Structure formats: C-alpha cells, structure tokens
Amino acid sequence: MLALVYVISLVCHFIVIYTMMSARFLEGLFRYTYPLVLISVVLYSISLIFSNAGRRPWLKTAGVFIFVLGSIQLLLYIWNLNTENVQVIIALQKVRSWNLLAESLLPIPFIMNFLSEKRKLEIKNWNSILSNVLIGFLLITGIAVTTTSFVLIKNSFRFSENLNNRLERAKVLAQPFEARTHVGSQGIKIPYRLLKPVDYDPNKAYPLVIGLHHGGGHGTDNALQIESSPYAQILSENEYRRNYPAFIFVPQCPPGFTWGGIPNQPDVAKVVFEAVDALEKEFSIDEKRRYVIGLSMGGYGSWHFISVRPKMFAAAIPICGGGNPDLAQNIINVPIWAFHGEKDRSVPVSLSRDMIKAIRDAGGNPQYTEFSSAGHDIWNQVNSTEGLLDWVFEQSLE
C-alpha cells in the first residue's frame, strides 16, 4: 500500500515538473510534491523493515538503506528551504551530491534478494531464460541509476562551484553600492543595495531605477542580486553614472518568493514598494521618474509592478518575462519597451507577445523587440540596443 502511495506521489511530482518546464504553470506545487515524495519514500522504507518483507535480510537491508538516504534527503531539503546563507546552501549541495552517489547502490540489495529467493525456490522447471532476463533488467537498472547519479553529482558540484564563483564576483560588483535592509509591514525582510548619484545634491530631484534580478539572485547575502542584474552593473559604471545621474535601487528577493506575476508563487512586491516609499522620504527622488528594469523572474516582476501600480512608474523594461494580459488595460499609458528571444525555452516568447498584443488591443502603444533565433540569454543584445537608456531616462509622468 505504501509502495502505491510512493508511486502516486512520484507521478504527481513528475506531472508538476513537466508542467513547470513546458507551460510555466504549477510552480508553487513543487514545494509540496517533492517533500511528499521524500516522506512516502521514508514510509515505504519503514514498511520494508517492519513488515513481513523485513524477514528477508536483503529487503530489510534495502529498507534501512532507503530510510537513511530518504531521511537525509528530506532534512537537506528542509534545511535548504529555511537557510539564508549562500555558503550553507553550497555545503548542502555537496552533501546532496554524495547522498545521490549512495543512492546509486540501491538496486544491489534488491538484486541480492532476487537471487536469494531464486535459490530457495529450487524448482526444477524454473525458466532460466526468464530468470536471466530479470537479473539483466535489474543490472541494467542499477547501471542506469548509477550513471544518472554520477551525472547529477557532476552537475551538483559544478553548481556549487559556479555559485561560489558568482558570489565572489558579486561581492566585487556590489562594492560601489551601499548595503541596506528594509523590513516590510508584514515582517518580511529584504536586503537591498543602493547607489546614489555622483555628487548627490539634496536640492535636486533624481530619477529612481529599480533593478529586478533574475532567479539566480535569490538570497540574503545582499550581493548576488547585483551579479544577477546586468543593468545595475552598467548603471554603476562611472561613465553611465555621469551621463544618467540617478538612484539605483537593487533589492534581493528572499528565498521562496518572487517579484510577482508568476502563478502560485508568493511575492514581495508590496515590500519593495514600501522600501521605495522609505527611500523617497530619506532622499530627494523625483516621483515622476521611477523606472523598473528586470529580466527573467525580474521581467515577470516588471510587468507585475506596472500592472498593479501603473501610476507609480514612468517607464518599464521587461526582459524575457511574462505578465497578465487581463491587466493590460491598466498599463496602456505606461511607456514600455519589452524584449524577448524567439527561441527562449525558459520563458516562452508567447508570454511577451501576448502582453504586447493585449496592450495594443486595449489602445496602448508599447515598444517590443524580439531577437530572432535567440534563446533566454539575451542580455548582451538588450544592452547593445541603441538609444535604450536615452529612451528610458526621457520618460516622465505627466
């Protein structure tokens, strides 16, 4: 019975993963189906240990093995979900890699149990061909699991190394920015970086640029969001700071949240708006020249921000994101220049196309640039778009 529960939970989990990858839907269910699979695995292992199956030494061994590995995986998942330390996340990823390697040995006790049961039967007319086929199947399964585990381990170590390198690079990129934190009215805390205009004069009003990072910038280290926001990097260069004097506000999305606009996912849009209100009370910011620029998850956030607060923003640059076409009427007067890659496999290009069409059908006139044959990584093409920064800094609320 518990084995059936495990199979059902596994099927549900794969349906969620497939739907997430193909249609960008059900993302919020992943955090429920994955631990459900792990819990059902642990329960199944307990049944192997204490049921009649446990009388067979190799099945009992398999049950203990599955219980230990499943429990470790579940603890790692819970710990990873609740930690805010990037270094801890890297360490957990490495432990998970070794756990995956141990999981590749799982078919062995089942193979040994099969061989043991075969010897006990001692039936003269035992079909040796069928026996060999079953043994071969188990061996092939074991080899496939082991190979997959090694691939996952390799990718896991590569992820950890890449994350560590990104964090070191992010610390360098974030140096020109001041590290700050804002606690929202609901207790949600977001770290952020703020770059003031060169030779800031409190008697002048300056534009505010909100840079929303992509999904790789999650955390509380208050650095990765700079590495994950190309426009924050560009606008922090001396040349651009002189040509486009402005406040550059780069919040970092906490783990488990988004900027908004992604179905079934909690967002921190309200906290960001509250942080902006606080900054405008502290500094001389032009309330008619607030701009939002975001890519990927930040692209979703850009669409979401202007859709729920259309009178707050003078312009938006959503890059390879998606929005809610039903809210198009809200943003027909917001200057928008959206970008997307035609071959984007991470965020379907149809999401940008649908938003642009809905806005135009509602009477708006957004600009849209689609890069033919380009995928998700279009930052360089966007950055090299002639006149883009001139365009955005020219925009002002009436």
Rank of each mutant, 00 (worst) to 15 (best):
R31T: 06
M112Y: 04
I336F: 08
F65P: 03
A246E: 03
E394L: 15
R309G: 05
I248E: 08
L59Q: 06
L167N: 15
E386C: 02
L105T: 10
P325Y: 00
P254H: 01
V271K: 05
R158V: 06
G142A: 13
V86G: 10
H304Q: 06
D221T: 11
S156F: 05
I108R: 00
R55S: 09
V276H: 09
A328P: 02
S97N: 11
K281R: 15
V250C: 07
A316D: 05
W98D: 08
E274P: 04
L388Y: 01
K154G: 10
R193L: 03
T369V: 03
P266R: 12
S22H: 11
I72K: 03
L29A: 13
V37D: 03
C12F: 12
L115N: 15
R31H: 08
V347A: 06
S296M: 12
P57G: 15
G322W: 05
L59A: 00
P266F: 08
H13Q: 15
M355R: 01
K270V: 14
L138F: 14
V268D: 02
V272G: 07
F137I: 12
V7Y: 05
W303G: 02
E386N: 10
V349M: 01
D199S: 11
P254M: 00
L139C: 10
A102I: 06
K196Y: 04
D201A: 10
V11L: 14
S116W: 09
H182W: 14
L36S: 14
W259S: 00
I108W: 00
L351C: 02
R290W: 12
E117S: 15
P207H: 14
K120L: 11
S97Y: 01
E117G: 15
W58Y: 13
G260M: 10
K196T: 04
L36T: 15
P255L: 07
I135S: 08
L389E: 03
A3M: 02
